[in-house]
Simulated assay, not measured.
Amino acid sequence: MTEAVKVRILDQEYTVACPEDAKNDLLQSADYVDRKMREIRQGGKVVGTDRIAVMAALNIAHELLEAQAENERLADVRQRLARLDARIAASLDDS
Protein backbone atom coordinates (compact mmCIF):
# COMPACT_ATOMS: atom_id res chain seq x y z
CA MET A 1 0.00 0.00 0.00
CA THR A 2 1.22 3.50 -0.80
CA GLU A 3 1.26 6.33 1.72
CA ALA A 4 2.07 10.03 1.62
CA VAL A 5 5.32 10.77 3.43
CA LYS A 6 6.45 14.29 4.29
CA VAL A 7 10.15 15.05 4.05
CA ARG A 8 12.12 18.27 4.60
CA ILE A 9 14.97 19.16 2.31
CA LEU A 10 16.75 22.46 2.73
CA ASP A 11 13.89 23.93 4.77
CA GLN A 12 11.28 22.97 2.14
CA GLU A 13 8.62 20.37 2.86
CA TYR A 14 7.74 17.82 0.19
CA THR A 15 5.04 15.16 0.21
CA VAL A 16 6.12 12.00 -1.56
CA ALA A 17 4.04 8.91 -2.35
CA CYS A 18 5.87 5.88 -1.10
CA PRO A 19 5.18 2.17 -0.47
CA GLU A 20 4.88 1.55 3.27
CA ASP A 21 7.83 -0.84 3.29
CA ALA A 22 10.09 1.78 1.69
CA LYS A 23 9.28 4.65 4.05
CA ASN A 24 12.48 4.30 6.09
CA ASP A 25 14.61 4.23 2.92
CA LEU A 26 12.85 7.35 1.64
CA LEU A 27 13.43 9.20 4.92
CA GLN A 28 17.11 8.22 4.91
CA SER A 29 17.44 9.33 1.28
CA ALA A 30 15.80 12.67 1.99
CA ASP A 31 18.09 13.18 4.99
CA TYR A 32 21.14 12.40 2.83
CA VAL A 33 20.03 14.83 0.10
CA ASP A 34 19.33 17.47 2.73
CA ARG A 35 22.81 17.06 4.25
CA LYS A 36 24.48 17.26 0.83
CA MET A 37 22.54 20.39 -0.12
CA ARG A 38 23.37 22.03 3.21
CA GLU A 39 27.07 21.26 2.72
CA ILE A 40 26.98 22.96 -0.68
CA ARG A 41 25.03 25.95 0.62
CA GLN A 42 27.44 26.36 3.55
CA GLY A 43 30.35 26.32 1.11
CA GLY A 44 28.99 29.63 -0.12
CA LYS A 45 30.05 29.20 -3.74
CA VAL A 46 26.64 28.18 -5.11
CA VAL A 47 23.62 30.45 -4.79
CA GLY A 48 20.02 29.48 -5.38
CA THR A 49 18.16 26.36 -4.34
CA ASP A 50 17.90 25.03 -7.88
CA ARG A 51 21.66 25.32 -8.42
CA ILE A 52 22.36 23.77 -5.03
CA ALA A 53 20.04 20.88 -5.94
CA VAL A 54 21.83 20.32 -9.26
CA MET A 55 25.25 20.37 -7.60
CA ALA A 56 24.04 17.94 -4.91
CA ALA A 57 22.60 15.65 -7.60
CA LEU A 58 25.89 15.71 -9.49
CA ASN A 59 27.87 14.94 -6.33
CA ILE A 60 25.54 12.09 -5.38
CA ALA A 61 25.68 10.69 -8.93
CA HIS A 62 29.47 10.83 -8.78
CA GLU A 63 29.46 8.95 -5.46
CA LEU A 64 27.14 6.34 -6.97
CA LEU A 65 29.35 5.85 -10.01
CA GLU A 66 32.44 5.50 -7.81
CA ALA A 67 30.64 2.92 -5.65
CA GLN A 68 29.53 0.98 -8.75
CA ALA A 69 33.09 0.97 -10.12
CA GLU A 70 34.41 -0.26 -6.76
CA ASN A 71 31.74 -2.97 -6.71
CA GLU A 72 32.82 -4.09 -10.19
CA ARG A 73 36.45 -4.21 -9.05
CA LEU A 74 35.44 -6.28 -6.02
CA ALA A 75 33.40 -8.62 -8.23
CA ASP A 76 36.48 -9.14 -10.41
CA VAL A 77 38.60 -9.91 -7.33
CA ARG A 78 35.95 -12.36 -6.10
CA GLN A 79 35.99 -14.14 -9.47
CA ARG A 80 39.79 -14.38 -9.41
CA LEU A 81 39.74 -15.73 -5.87
CA ALA A 82 37.10 -18.31 -6.82
CA ARG A 83 39.27 -19.46 -9.76
CA LEU A 84 42.33 -19.69 -7.50
CA ASP A 85 40.31 -21.59 -4.91
CA ALA A 86 39.15 -24.02 -7.59
CA ARG A 87 42.73 -24.49 -8.80
CA ILE A 88 43.96 -25.11 -5.25
CA ALA A 89 41.14 -27.59 -4.61
CA ALA A 90 41.94 -29.38 -7.89
CA SER A 91 45.64 -29.54 -6.96
CA LEU A 92 44.82 -30.96 -3.55
CA ASP A 93 42.51 -33.54 -5.12
CA ASP A 94 45.31 -34.64 -7.47
CA SER A 95 47.67 -35.21 -4.53
Rank of each mutant, 00 (worst) to 15 (best):
Y14T: 06
Y14R: 07
Y14L: 12
Y14E: 05
T15K: 08
T15C: 13
T15A: 15
V16Q: 00
V16H: 04
V16N: 08
V16A: 09
V16S: 05
A17T: 11
A17R: 12
A17I: 13
C18M: 06
C18L: 13
C18Q: 08
P19N: 09
P19C: 10
E20V: 14
E20Q: 15
E20T: 15
E20A: 15
D21P: 13
D21H: 15
D21Y: 03
A22Y: 10
A22R: 15
A22C: 14
A22V: 12
A22D: 15
A22N: 13
A22W: 14
K23A: 11
K23V: 15
K23P: 04
N24D: 15
N24E: 15
N24A: 14
N24Q: 07
N24G: 12
N24S: 15
N24R: 11
D25Q: 07
D25C: 03
D25A: 11
D25T: 14
D25Y: 04
D25M: 00
D25N: 05
L26S: 06
L26N: 11
L26G: 08
L26V: 05
L26I: 05
L27M: 09
L27D: 10
L27H: 12
Q28V: 01
Q28L: 09
Q28E: 08
Q28A: 07
S29Y: 11
S29P: 02
S29M: 13
A30R: 01
A30I: 04
A30W: 06
A30L: 00
A30V: 01
A30K: 01
D31H: 07
D31A: 04
D31M: 03
D31Y: 06
D31P: 00
Y32H: 04
Y32Q: 06
Y32M: 04
Y32R: 02
Y32C: 02
Y32E: 00
V33N: 07
V33D: 01
V33I: 13
V33A: 02
D34W: 05
D34C: 00
R35G: 01
R35Y: 00
K36W: 06
K36P: 14
K36A: 12
M37I: 02
M37A: 08
M37N: 02
M37F: 04
M37Y: 07
M37C: 07
R38N: 13
R38I: 11
R38P: 01
E39H: 08
E39R: 09
E39D: 12
E39W: 04
E39L: 11
E39N: 07
E39C: 01
E39P: 02
I40F: 07
R41N: 14
R41S: 15
Q42F: 05
Q42W: 11
Q42L: 11
G43V: 00
G43L: 02
G43K: 04
G44T: 01
G44S: 01
G44P: 07
K45F: 11
K45I: 03
K45E: 05
K45V: 08
K45M: 01
V46A: 09
V46Y: 00
V46C: 05
V46H: 00
V46F: 12
V47N: 00
V47L: 03
V47W: 11
V47G: 04
V47T: 05
V47H: 08
G48F: 10
G48Q: 06
G48V: 06
G48C: 10
G48N: 09
T49R: 09
T49K: 08
T49S: 03
T49M: 10
T49Y: 10
T49D: 08
D50G: 00
D50R: 03
